[in-house]
Amino acid sequence: MQQQITLEIFRYNPDDKEGPAYKKYEVPFRKDWVILDALNHIKDRIDGTLSFRWSCRMGICGSCGMKVNGNPVLTCASFLEKLAPGPIRIEPLEYFPVIRDLVINMDDFMDNLKKVRSWIIHEKDDNLDEEYLQTPDQLSDYKQYSMCINCMLCYSACPVYGLEPGFMGPAVIALAQRYNMDSRDDGNKLRMDIMNAEGGIWHCTFVGDCSAVCPKNVDPAGAIQRYKLEGARAWWTRWLLPWGKE
């Protein structure tokens, strides 16, 4: 078995005069190591200037997403062994501005998350004394979409997000669906107006790669197509039946 494996890491420091470059690092090749372990090894033992985000090491915090050999993955869940013999190329997530090395700027995503009102909206004022009950069946309607960990791998997989400035992208649309389908939520109509506007669902051409890379099986592509079906139904109701409710 090989002793070492090479990592080609994208390096960029905004304070340096030189532009971005790939730098090679040799790390021990261990069966039980994931990419994130190798990155931490580099940071601790070889080059302390390497910057990257990580937190939980167990696929739930959603902060260690990077492009590995061109594919967006959670680095805490990608074993070196699967990528042997190397070299392994590690880059920041695609389509996001790079702050430094493997750290991206996610402001656009955070803004969109707010824009789609990814929280429960009540038509009436919240009554804090009242409980909002929900059955397991009602929960199962949206549970899949609520598994999203905001890791943004789906953005990095979506060519439309790269091509169309303003497109909100897969995860936030799936999250809008997560709240639409929640029995306690009344924000459906409000979100539909947002989704029909510039940047919304109609940019999506169902490439489907977002669902392929999702580590939590959220299936954002499916969520968006369901949204389109609902949007089309609302459109025809509005135009054919002037008295119709959407």
Binding site: N196, A197, G200, W202, K228, A232, A234, W236
Partner: peptide
């Protein structure tokens, strides 16, 4: 509203 008619065309596309 640029996207006003997208649902209309998309319906025909799907059918």
């Amino acid at each position: 509203m640029k996207h006003q008619f997208e649902p209309f065309w998309w319906s025909w596309f799907s059918a």
